[in-house]
C-alpha cells in the first residue's frame, strides 16, 4: 500500500456537535490536501437533537443520518460497515467534538500505510502531552489497562481513546461485530483475540471544543461495570470460538 493509493475513510461520529463539526471536517480536508491523500470524510449523525444535520448537509463530505440514536458504538459500527462495503483500505475514527486534532492524522495513519500494524490507537499517555483527562477517568483507564493486560497480554495505555485507525483486515472483523454503547476498551480485547497487531502511537489531544461527554460522574460506575462485563463476555465468546476452530 503506497501512501497516495490507499483509500482512507475518516469516520466522524457526531451527536449534537453543531458548534464544532464544520471546523473538524474542514481541518481534515486541509490535512488531505497537504498530504495528497485519497481520503473521504464520513460524518455519522447519531440522531442529533440540535442543528448538526443541517450543518453537515452543507459540508462537502459524505454523511450518514441515523434514523434513531444508536450511541457511539452503533454509530461507529455504521461507519465501519460503510468503509468495508465501499472498499476503503483504511478507516479512521475521529471524534466530532474536536478532541482529536486533524494534524495528528498522519501519526495515526503512518503505521498502517507502512504495513506495520492492523490497528493504530492514538494515545494520550505515552508521552503525557496535551489534554490528559480527569483524575477519575484516569483511574478507570488504568483499570482497563490491567484488565486488557491480563486478558490479551498486550499493554494498551489508552484503551478508552477513540482516535483510531483500522486497516482492511480489521474492518472485516469490525464489519461483523462492533460493541455497543462504550465500545473502545471492549474492541481492544476483540482485536487482541483476533490476533491483530495493535500499535499505540503518541498523540496530543485537546480538551473537547464543544458538546458534552457521553460519560458524567453518575454514569461512571455504570460505565465501568458495563465495559468490564462487555470485555469479559467478548473474551469468553472469542476464546470459545478459537477453541472450537
Amino acid at each position: 500500500m503506497t501512501r497516495n493509493q490507499a483509500r482512507v475513510l475518516v469516520v466522524v461520529p457526531c451527536y449534537n456537535e453543531e458548534a464544532v463539526i464544520a471546523a473538524v471536517v474542514s481541518d481534515i480536508y486541509q490535512v488531505k490536501a497537504h498530504h495528497q491523500l485519497r481520503l473521504d470524510v464520513l460524518v455519522v449523525n447519531d440522531c442529533s437533537t440540535d442543528r448538526s444535520i443541517d450543518i453537515i448537509r452543507t459540508l462537502p463530505c459524505l454523511y450518514l443520518d441515523l434514523p434513531v440514536n444508536l450511541g457511539i458504538g452503533g454509530a461507529m459500527h455504521a461507519g465501519y460497515k460503510y468503509a468495508w462495503r465501499n472498499g476503503y483500505d483504511i478507516a479512521v475514527q475521529m471524534d466530532g467534538d474536536g478532541q482529536h486534532p486533524a494534524n495528528q492524522l498522519m501519526t495515526i495513519l503512518t503505521p498502517i500505510l507502512d504495513n506495520q500494524a492492523d490497528v493504530v490507537i492514538g494515545s494520550r499517555f505515552i508521552e503525557k502531552e496535551g489534554f490528559q483527562s480527569s483524575a477519575m477517568r484516569r483511574v478507570g483507564i488504568n483499570y482497563f489497562r490491567r484488565l486488557n493486560q491480563a486478558l490479551i497480554g498486550q499493554t494498551i495505555y489508552d484503551s478508552t481513546s477513540g482516535f483510531r485507525a483500522f486497516n482492511r483486515r480489521t474492518l472485516e472483523i469490525v464489519n461483523r461485530y462492533y460493541p455497543d454503547e462504550y465500545p473502545e476498551p471492549e474492541a481492544i480485547v476483540l482485536f487482541g483475540l483476533s490476533k491483530l497487531h495493535i500499535q499505540e502511537v503518541p498523540v496530543i489531544m485537546r480538551e473537547r471544543q464543544g458538546g458534552v461527554s457521553s460519560i458524567n460522574s453518575s454514569k461512571a460506575l455504570y460505565y465501568m461495570l458495563k465495559v468490564s462485563l462487555g470485555i469479559l463476555f467478548v473474551y469468553a465468546r472469542l476464546v470459545r470460538k478459537n477453541l472450537t476452530h
Partner: peptide
C-alpha cells in the same frame, strides 16, 4: 440497530 444502519445507507 442493523435496520437503522441500513436505512442510513439507503438515505445516503
Amino acid at each position: 440497530k442493523t435496520l437503522a444502519q441500513e436505512v442510513a445507507y439507503l438515505k445516503q
